[in-house]
């Protein structure tokens, strides 16, 4: 269980980042930013709709705030990994495990990803937070909300993953 120590080492560092966020600003979180970005895109087409749809921008200033910058930071971390740490994904990347099970069709992978993204953020907003905002920030405060969400997420995630991969052997 402790043979590979790296997950624990990065977990300790990540835990310290979470504490840093608490001490300097607020708990980490991601999902709300999606809703705000959608609100801004819709505002371009119909300001009237956004104004009358109660939930957009309900809780905080829409653009320049800590959480938005946090998500931009996540994207920058990905760019740093790609250009400075040698983590560049190959052209037309398809996850290896997915390719073994579902083939290398890009259309299929991208369509599934889009659909999965819809479920992911609808679920996260319904639960009032995602893995970072609900499970990690809430879990570290021993908030019951985090554990209810965590049980639902892992139970259905495990069942879905096992069902998706049940019919063929994939290494």
């Amino acid at each position: 269980m402790f043979k590979n120590k790296m997950p624990y080492i990065w977990g300790v560092l990540m835990g310290l980042v979470v504490v840093f966020a608490f001490a300097t600003a607020r708990p980490v979180g991601t999902a709300t930013v999606y809703e705000k970005v959608t609100g801004h895109i819709l505002q371009f087409f119909s300001p009237e709709y956004v104004r009358t749809t109660e939930h957009y921008f309900a809780s905080a200033a829409p653009v320049a705030e800590w959480e938005t910058m946090f998500v931009i930071g996540l994207f920058l971390a990905g760019l740093i990994a790609r250009y400075l740490l040698g983590g560049r994904a190959q052209q037309n990347y398809i996850p290896q495990m997915w390719a073994q099970r579902f083939g290398t069709s890009r259309v299929r992978r991208y369509a599934a990803s889009f659909f999965a993204g819809v479920l992911l953020l609808f679920g996260a907003r319904l639960a009032n937070g995602c893995t970072s905002g609900n499970f990690i920030s809430g879990g570290s405060q021993l908030a019951l909300s985090a554990y209810i969400f965590g049980i639902g997420m892992f139970a259905s995630g495990i069942v879905t993953a096992v069902l998706l991969y049940r019919s063929r052997r994939v290494a």
Binding site: G117, V118, L119, G123, M153, T160
Partner: peptide, 9 residues
């Protein structure tokens, strides 16, 4: 929400 999230995840 957790269950729907898990399917997407």
């Amino acid at each position: 929400g957790g269950i729907i999230f898990g399917v997407g995840f």
